[in-house]
Design a binder for these strands. Structure first.
Lengths: 220, 220
DNA sequence: CTTTATGGGTAGTTGAACTATCCTTGTAGG
DNA sequence: CCTACAAGGATAGTTCAACTACCCATAAAG
């Protein structure tokens, strides 16, 4: 199909698709003649994935490119490829963390949690999720909110169950490439689902506890 | 304390603090004399909350202002105030949703899920979380990934447990204002914790299932 | 009484994600 | 064959959010 048709079917302006081609988020179409390219269904699908990563995953274009590069790299072995793809997902490794009092304490708390769960050496101090965890714990501490093991362990338990469920989903796929794309897509797309359900559950639980309650925008 | 000291203690440039004052994210200090203002500990704390909302909650300044306005508004009754505060948190109500095939189907799936959980009328179609849920389901569908009840119910169950835990935390506080700030802060700050733990659990679970595995940036 | 710092306002900067334009090249109808 | 319309590709411009640098008048300090 032509660029114009790709644009129509994806709902994106041609200028945006050209931009994605330039940024290498979308592989070029096959040149049917020096000035005409042809795109297939795989381009449409890739475009949908790109939009999911950017809009729903809220990740910058450079990050999306990294992820897609890892997904496409058939030269690496499966483990490295998967590791690079999900490792590139935001939150990426942030700056070498200022070592203020609060951060050091938060890091200790995080290590304590991971140790108590037996999640040793799964992640060293450089991974995005670990950093994000420490940052959030530091912010909680700075505001005086609870962030000790008693409060974190329930979260970790639910996370463990979700992870098992997620891995089951990924293992439904056969080919390495499919599994890696599934791992990326399901990691990213189930995040808003989880957060939305938590918010909805807050509202539900609050109603149960306090009777009627305004639950957001019903007033606006 | 002076602006300069507030800047030093919060780690933010004075220019940024002045910007937040202008944007009404921070109440003005008490004018000690037409050209000198004085700030207290509550300003420092508010500044930390603002940074948490913006950096960790990744919300735009305008949204943070809405949330803070609701937190501060002592004129409303507790339910409305809480509802407005958490209702303003992102993802806010997005545009009136294009009614393409995929979105309609996703909405039906979402309604089915909420019905099957008995979460009726907790949230109507206009709330942010509901919209985010529908959007994510539509994206999953477009990519051909599972998004049916069987896959969503486990997520909803874990979300329910987390919500109960969260409400317990909020109810530890006595005053209405404290509860509302706690609800906002804990809603926002536990989100990255939950997502980080899920990612870490993915790595852990993957190691258990497949033996060694590259878990992200260890290769970079 | 001078020097330096402060608060407040205004305008400029930066980076990300597009978007509009131009130009060259095909391609097709007559 | 010739002309006109459209596609592809490159380049520069736009928009928005979040800061940030500068300026000026006023105070507080020495």
């Amino acid at each position: 199909m032509r660029l114009a048709e790709l644009s129509e079917r994806s709902g994106l302006p041609t200028a945006t698709i050209k931009y994605y081609l330039r940024e290498q988020l979308l592989p070029p179409g096959v040149l049917v003649s020096a000035k005409q390219a042809d795109y297939g269904e795989e381009h449409l699908r890739r475009l949908r994935l790109v939009r999911a990563l950017i809009q729903i995953g809220r990740m910058p274009i450079a990050t999306a490119r990294e992820v897609l590069t890892a997904i496409d790299d058939e030269s690496l072995d499966q483990n490295d490829r998967l590791g690079m793809a999900v490792g590139a997902l935001p939150p990426g490794p942030t700056q070498p963390d200022q070592d203020d009092r609060a951060t050091v304490a938060a890091r200790r708390e995080a290590d304590l949690l991971l140790d108590s769960l037996g999640w040793t050496n799964c992640e060293d101090a450089s991974s995005g999720p670990y950093r994000a965890l420490v940052t959030a714990l530091a912010a909680l501490a700075a505001l005086g909110y609870p962030h000790d093991l008693d409060h974190l362990v329930p979260y970790a338990q639910q996370a463990t169950r979700l992870a098992a469920h997620d891995l089951d989903m990924v293992q439904e796929y056969e080919s390495p490439s499919e599994q890696i794309e599934a791992a990326v897509a399901l990691t990213v797309l189930y995040e808003p689902i989880l957060l939305s359900l938590r918010r909805l559950a807050h509202a539900r639980e609050s109603t149960l506890r306090h009777g009627t309650r305004a639950t957001g925008r019903s007033t606006a």
